[in-house]
Structures are given as C-alpha cells and as structure tokens.
C-alpha cells in the first residue's frame, strides 16, 4: 500500500521555500596566515554579505514590504543576528559538533579553539543540538526564520498592529504546515516556537562577541555589518 500523499504546503511556506537565498561562500583569503585574525576577518566579511542577502530576502516575506520603512528597519536591526545564527545552525544540522558557517567554512571544536572562535562555537552548539533533536525540516526552518524577524521585539515599532498581523500570518502558516505534515505530533509547532528564547540568547552572545571584536579594532569590518552591530 503506498503511503498517503502529503497534503500541499500552505501558500506562505511554499513561497518562503522559493525565496530562500542561494548559498554564499566564505572564501577565506588564501594569502592570510591561519589564526584568529584570518578566521574573524573571514566571518565578518561573510556576515556582511549575508546581511545584504537577508535584507533582500526579508522583502519577499509576504506582508513585510507593506510595513513602513521605519518598521522594516527596526525588525531587521533587532533580528538580523537571530536570522544569521538560525541559518548557520540549519546548515550545521547534518554535522556532528561542527559549525557550518558556510559550505566552504566548516569549523570543528579544535579548529574553533585555534581560530579564536571557541566562544562562538560553544554558544551555537546547544541550539544546533536542540534542532537536531527536533529533526527540523527546511519548511520549518524558513518559517521560523521569518517568525524570528516578525517577532524581534523591537522597542521602536510604529505600527504594532501591522507587525502583529505579520506575526499572526506566519504563525498560522507554521501551524497549518504542522497540522498537515505532522498530525502525529500536535505540539510540534509549539516545540519549534519554544526554541526562540534559546535562539535569542545565542544571537545576543554572538552580537556581544562581535561587538567586543569591533571595539578592539583589529579586524576589518564592512560598513553594513558595523551599522547593524551599532544598531544593537
């Protein structure tokens, strides 16, 4: 007997899958000597390029572009690191205790220690373990990423009702997805949403890490990355 055909995905989740950005690569500078300066320079450059992609991606989330420009900015300024961390964690799910910053930049604990990335590594691993345990799927990842943006708790939102409507539509999309794809676990949407506090904690640690690097002034940082760090 063939397994029952899965129901079609909700419109929003299918749309989020379509607008999911292409992979980008870290491309570490081969002329730089290995060490923490090279590792951090590579990560800051990668983060800057990822930010450009994230801003472009956000515009494709149904309902985001109809928010005022000021509210779009506030949501991104609050949530950008959560989006970055969630993407890194999703890429790292197939690995065991390795962090996939990019396809060409996979770091294990030993390499993290040598490269001065151990704090970041140790901060990200618990979140990766949590999503591994849940066996998070791509549809759930794209939904959760959009929810993290809409639910960023910025203190500067002008139109709270409009942001609430965005949250509601994304929340509903996740619930509909789980209702149709995981009827065996009626609490799955809730379990995913309950990971958001750890995502925020992890992102806060990552922002603090990069902010202290910025203050030390030894690593070159591009303007968009600096701008977003300063907004935190």
């Amino acid at each position: 007997i063939p397994p029952p055909a899965k129901k079609p995905l909700t419109k929003i989740v299918s749309h989020l899958l379509v607008v999911e950005p292409e992979k980008i690569y870290a491309m570490p500078d081969p002329t730089m000597p290995d060490g923490d300066v090279k590792a951090l320079t590579t990560l800051c450059d990668l983060a800057d390029r990822e930010l450009v992609v994230i801003i472009g991606w956000a515009k494709h989330i149904p309902g985001f572009s109809t928010l005022s420009l000021a509210d779009q900015m506030s949501l991104l300024q609050s949530a950008w690191m959560e989006i970055l961390v969630l993407s890194i964690v999703f890429r790292s799910l197939p690995c065991e205790d390795e962090i996939v910053y990019a396809e060409d930049y996979v770091v294990d604990e030993e390499q993290a220690r040598i490269s001065g990335l151990l704090d970041l590594h140790v901060a990200i691993l618990p979140l990766a373990r949590r999503y591994k345990k849940l066996r998070m799927e791509k549809e759930e990842f794209v939904s959760l990423k959009a929810i993290a943006l809409a639910n960023s708790d910025s203190m500067h939102i002008e139109n709270i009702e409009a942001v609430q409507r965005l949250q509601d539509s994304l929340h509903e999309a996740l619930q509909d997805f789980e209702g149709s794809q995981h009827p065996e676990d009626p609490r799955r949407a809730g379990k995913l949403l309950m990971t958001l506090p750890l995502l925020r904690q992890t992102a806060t640690k990552a922002v603090q890490h990069f902010y202290s690097i910025k203050m030390q002034g030894k690593i070159p940082m591009h303007k968009l990355f600096l701008e977003m760090l300063e907004a935190k």
Binding site: D48, R49, V52, I55, G56, K59, L69, A70, Q72, M73, L76, Q77, H222, K223, L224, E227, M228, E230, A231
Partner: peptide, 20 residues
C-alpha cells in the same frame, strides 16, 4: 535614518550600496 544609511538604502531600492 542617516545613521543606518546602508540598511535604509537596501530596503528602499534594489541597487547595491556603493561601499560594501
């Protein structure tokens, strides 16, 4: 907005910022 020039610029239009 002046402080967050690049974010503002990227959200407002589809052109790449000059300094990235």
């Amino acid at each position: 907005k002046e402080k967050h020039k690049i974010l503002h610029q990227l959200l407002q239009n589809n052109t790449s910022p000059v300094d990235l």
